[in-house]
């Protein structure tokens, strides 16, 4: 384990905007975003986004999405705190893949059950989710009631030694390498097509999670992006969406993460209005070390144009042939 890893500096920022279609229809934003710790700067850093279905039968999906990001972040934080054998990455990987999906789905269900107990569904709402049949068992009725809270969940957790990605349902997780190359850490789920998505409210939802565990190498990603599907669906093609990763990394390097954060809301708003019309959420986890490394490289290695200009300036100096004096 290198010293560099222990001093690694990361920062998370993010925004969520109500979709243009939802604004026109007077519907609230069904997406949610949450990160731990609140400062967004100390490792381990956990970022979660969720997209509540917003369908007629998922009429509490705004709450479902909020509960999803909060419970998922807590479960993963507790999981990371509980890892005593931090050197044994393969054991952590196995535990993350096998245990976390079950734990995230179960904790969300508990939170939904508590919410239902505090805010029972009305007779009309029970009818809407098909939980009103007199012969329905308590378990079936409970299962149907969860549909009201239906949501996706996407999480990235950055630790000193590894990065963890979990996803259930639609949306995108992208990673951007130091050189600007954009890739997706998770395989595509072919079922996520034509507005259909896997969901936390489904029976055995844990089976539908996609999980990726990456040990932190010498060059971890410069940037990690988590977005709900309203954002990628706003671009004409996939390459246009992948370009977001490259562009934002360049912008952070040129103008700083604060400037990017200041503009996120307006970018996302423009995207939903000129694109999908859906709610749009984007969370970014940025490696501040990567930004600093690049800045150092630029100082040390002037661009060809800068070198040419420096050369031209030198050639124009009248004292260019004078001996150079050094302070000793």
């Amino acid at each position: 384990m290198s010293k560099d890893k222990h001093t690694a500096r990361w920062r998370v920022v993010g925004q969520s905007v109500r979709g243009a279609t939802h604004e026109r229809a007077g519907v609230t934003n069904q997406d949610a975003i949450h990160w731990l710790p609140e400062s967004g700067t100390e490792l381990p850093l956990i970022l979660a986004v969720a997209d509540g279905h917003g369908s007629r039968r998922s009429f509490r999906s705004e709450t479902g999405a909020r509960l999803a990001v909060e419970t998922a972040a807590q479960v993963i934080r507790d999981f990371l705190r509980g890892q005593v054998e931090i050197e044994n990455l393969s054991a952590i990987k196995r535990a993350a893949e096998e245990w976390l999906p079950v734990a995230v789905a179960r904790r969300w269900l508990e939170a939904v059950t508590n919410h239902l107990a505090a805010h029972p569904l009305s007779a009309d709402e029970l009818k809407l989710v098909g939980a009103d049949q007199p012969e329905a068992s308590v378990q079936a009725s409970q299962s149907n009631s969860q549909l009201a809270y239906g949501t996706t969940i996407l999480v990235a957790a950055v630790t000193v030694d590894f990065i963890l990605y979990l996803q259930l349902g639609d949306g995108e997780i992208l990673i951007v390498a130091d050189d600007g190359e954009v890739s997706s850490p998770l395989p595509k789920d072919q079922r996520l097509f034509a507005n259909e998505t896997t969901s936390l409210c489904s029976e055995d939802a844990w089976r539908d999670f996609r999980v990726c565990f990456q040990a932190v190498s010498n060059t971890p990603p410069a940037l990690i992006l988590l977005s709900t599907d309203g954002y990628p669906n706003s671009f004409r093609d996939e390459s246009g969406f992948f370009k977001v990763g490259t562009d934002i990394l360049e912008m952070i390097r040129a103008e700083g993460l604060d400037m990017v954060n200041d503009h996120l809301e307006s970018w996302l708003r423009e995207s939903t209005y000129a694109g999908s019309g859906d709610d749009v959420t984007l969370g970014l986890i940025c490696s501040l070390d990567s930004i600093a490394r690049q800045a150092m490289r630029e100082i040390r290695t002037p661009t060809l144009q800068q070198a040419a200009e420096q050369g031209r300036e030198f050639n124009q100096r009248e004292d260019r042939d004078a001996p150079v004096e050094y302070d000793v």
């Binding site: 671009f235 004409r236 370009k243 977001v244 562009d247 970018w267 995207s271 694109g275 999908s276």
Partner: peptide, 13 residues
């Protein structure tokens, strides 16, 4: 910073 990240935006057909 006027530039928006990403490629061309488009409504869904």
């Amino acid at each position: 910073m006027n530039m928006r990240p990403g490629g061309e935006l488009a409504t869904r057909p």
